[in-house]
Design a protein around this nucleic acid. Structure first.
Length: 197
DNA sequence: GCCAACGTTGGC
DNA sequence: GCCAACGTTGGC
């Protein structure tokens, strides 16, 4: 549960030193071994282009946020896609992500890239809409794509070799900001047109 | 609300 | 640098 901090007043800048917020306890970070080590791994290392010309890690992402109220150190972490829509410019800074890997992914995101906005830790978890990366609202999904439905496909794909066979939502359970392959992204978009299965 | 999974911390 | 204790995430 990364939480977006709604401070927007003109502050376009990507989250400055703002971590005292809700998520805040991060005083000691030592680390890194894992952090940088993991970065490159999920992508087939484009040998040449590792600069940001664009084809770094991934062009598609999934970001989790909690749509239901929950207090964490006295602060409500609720931030649904409706809350995002209600922001000025329908845009919010995304900070409060503590996990190293998730933070690295966040840094790797480029402005115009698209991400699914996923509702977690709630009655009916699932993908609610599309955003692009600052994070700005793009549109609602044509229908809510539930975790249960995604899981059904994931399980089938594990045996058939379908597009969701390695989806991070299931294989990297607690990662709140995660990359999607184009195949995963497109497959999930295609579900919008179908009956919920 | 429960609790499994898993990341993080810190003693040794 | 191992690993047990602890804290967090997030489905159910």
């Amino acid at each position: 549960m990364p939480k977006p901090r709604k401070r927007l007043a003109g502050a376009a800048g990507p989250a400055g030193p703002d971590n005292k917020g809700p998520a805040g306890k991060r005083t000691k970070t030592k680390n890194p071994a894992g952090a940088s080590a993991t970065m490159g791994n999920s992508s087939p290392e484009k040998t040449s282009a590792s600069k940001d010309s664009g084809k770094n890690l991934s062009n598609y992402w999934l970001m989790k946020s909690e749509p239901e109220s929950r207090l964490e150190k006295g602060v409500d972490v609720k931030f649904s896609i409706e809350d995002l829509k209600a922001q000025p410019k329908q845009t919010a800074c995304w900070d409060g992500v503590r996990n190293y890997q998730a933070r690295n992914f966040l840094r790797a995101m480029k402005l115009e890239q698209e991400a699914f906005f996923y509702h977690s830790n709630c009655k009916e978890p699932g993908i609610a809409g599309l955003v692009k990366v600052d994070v700005q609202f793009v549109r609602m999904m044509k229908r809510y794509i539930t975790l249960a439905e995604l899981k059904t496909h994931y399980q089938a794909h594990k045996t058939t070799g379908g597009p969701l066979k390695n989806m991070a939502l299931f294989t990297r359970q607690r990662l709140s900001v995660q990359p999607l392959t184009p195949e995963e992204f497109n497959f999930i978009l295609s579900l919008e047109e179908k009956e919920p299965s």
